[in-house]
């Protein structure tokens, strides 16, 4: 594939054809905030925290999805781009509970001087979490509507289509059909939505309980990579242990067999390891 050359903040950058602006920025050690962009998913293009200025384009462009053209001139740090990213972060933080988004994002907020308190009004914060079973929790007060779970449950990974975006505008929300409880829906409990959720809105029950109780402690956790004990496909698993007990099981998103996905047995079927009649 041919290489393309572009200018980012005055410096010349060369990237393979098909790279996005974000790829190009990262290729030279830079970075931009992102939320809806998932490494295993097509860009959803919706959160708009990654916007940059491209000369010649009227509006700002999403760096996570805009593919580089030869000779493109990109500015990531203009007042205009920063203003927009800042307001968007403020809007998000004023409308949902971002407390469990990863640390990188809070660093971005700080870096941009975002002040969510400027905007008050309607918020989904405080909505009760949906706890319908022992496997995972949907704590939608934390949902930023990034579409990642819908895309993962849908055509891009799982193809079960148990969840969708329903409603419109500020009322848009992630829902099962007619908002029925999860066990009544089409959900197959693969947890592949959990794997892509950037906000902690979707979380394994054990992890969620521990976070609620304040006992979840990443610093005391170890991750061991192994292979699922069930069928013969060979899915890789990361076993997360805290003080010798399994607290979560995930799959590495850079493993080509799973891309971070598992089925119900792989993700949740491990409790036999800790069951009592051994």
């Amino acid at each position: 594939m041919a290489d393309l050359t572009l200018t980012i903040d005055g410096g010349t950058v060369t990237v393979p054809e098909g790279s996005t602006i974000l790829d190009a920025v990262r290729s030279v050690g830079g970075d931009l905030p992102t939320l809806c962009h998932g490494p295993t998913l097509e860009p959803a293009n919706v959160c708009r925290v990654c916007m940059v200025e491209v000369e010649g384009a009227g509006a700002l462009v999403p760096s996570c999805s805009r593919v580089v053209d030869e000779g493109m001139v990109v500015h990531t740090d203009t007042d205009r781009a920063r203003h927009s990213r800042t307001v968007v972060m403020e809007l998000l933080a004023s409308s949902a509970d971002l407390e469990r988004v990863d640390d990188r994002f809070s660093a971005w907020m700080e870096d941009h001087g975002a002040d969510p308190a400027r905007f008050t009004g309607a918020t989904i914060e405080g909505r009760p979490a949906k706890v319908h079973d022992d496997l995972y929790v949907r704590d939608y007060a934390r949902c930023i509507l990034c579409y990642r779970c819908v895309d993962a449950c849908g055509e891009q990974h799982q193809n079960t289509f148990a969840i969708t975006v329903a409603g419109r505008g500020f009322d848009a929300h992630i829902s099962t059909e007619f908002d029925v409880a999860l066990p009544d829906s089409a959900c197959v409990y693969c947890g592949n939505c959990i794997a892509v959720c950037p906000t902690g809105a979707l979380e394994g029950k054990i992890a969620w309980d521990m976070k609620e109780a304040g006992t979840w402690d990443i610093d005391r956790q170890e991750v061991t990579r192994t292979v699922c004990s069930y069928c013969g496909v060979g899915c890789n698993l990361d076993i997360h242990t805290q003080e010798g007990a399994i607290v979560d099981v995930t799959s590495p998103e850079d493993h080509d067999v799973t891309l971070g996905n598992l089925c119900i047995k792989g993700r949740f079927g491990w409790s036999f390891v800790v069951s009592v009649d051994e």
């Binding site: 170890e222 061991t224 990579r225 192994t226 292979v227 004990s229 013969g232 496909v233 060979g234 890789n236 076993i239 242990t241 010798g244 007990a245 399994i246 067999v257 491990w270 036999f272 390891v273 051994e278």
Partner: peptide, 30 residues
């Protein structure tokens, strides 16, 4: 009584003939 998944080291081979490492994450019980 044998140690199970997550309690031992070794390899497994998948249906695409891929040999992968399996690892020990926790101690076997009792």
């Amino acid at each position: 009584p044998a140690a199970g998944w997550g309690e031992t080291e070794g390899t497994v081979t998948s249906s695409e003939r891929r040999v992968q490492r399996s690892r020990k994450a926790i101690d076997p019980p009792g």
